[in-house]
């Protein structure tokens, strides 16, 4: 009983860090609300380190995920004949200190999936690898395209997440 309460407290702390981290990543990208890609960036910064380990197990550098997000935007712009970002690649950092309370639909989908995961497994703590698993399970969108731009395969990531979760607990 006490362990359950302790675990729940830990998960609440992780979720809070994950959300505030995703907000921060959205702000850095000059976007008003975090999407799935910002939740993944935030998960890569979680102190449990499991999200980074999944990338490393796949032979990918977790620090390159942000670059991959930019690459998938550039590739998409190239497909419409825009080869050089006319407004410079650097986004405008949002200066506000306001905490965002909303996420883009893809960000909301990440949180819903994490909640469902926790309902299924109440005995294990929520860690960054769970977020990687949820985001990698998305077929479309910015995060999915960025993972593909890194050469990361959905099924491969799903297996590596399972391995990481086994070794983590």
């Amino acid at each position: 009983m006490f362990n359950r309460i302790k675990l729940r407290f830990c998960d609440m702390k992780t979720i809070s860090t994950l959300i505030s981290g995703a907000d921060e990543q959205a702000r850095i990208s000059g976007e008003d609300e975090p999407g799935a890609e910002h939740y993944l960036l935030s998960a890569l910064n979680l102190s449990d380190g499991s999200a980074r380990k999944v990338f490393e197990r796949a032979g990918a550098d977790p620090d390159k995920f942000r670059v991959a997000i930019g690459k998938q935007y550039n590739d998409a712009l190239n497909s419409v004949g825009i080869n050089d970002d006319p407004i410079k690649a650097d986004p405008e950092l949002i200066a506000s200190t306001k905490i965002f309370h909303n996420s883009k639909p893809s960000g909301q989908a990440v949180m819903k999936a994490l909640y469902a995961l926790k309902q299924e497994d109440k005995d294990k703590p929520l860690v960054g690898a769970h977020v990687v698993g949820v985001v990698a399970g998305m077929d479309h969108g910015v995060a999915a395209r960025a993972l593909r731009a890194m050469g990361l395969d959905q099924k491969c990531i799903a297996n590596l997440v399972k391995e990481e979760l086994k070794s983590h607990h």
Partner: peptide, 18 residues
């Protein structure tokens, strides 16, 4: 490919607007 382009154009337009 078409929807990826739409999203990228939207992000570019938002940055330009800001």
């Amino acid at each position: 490919e078409a929807l990826a382009a739409v999203v990228a154009l939207r992000v570019m337009a938002e940055r330009l607007e800001k």
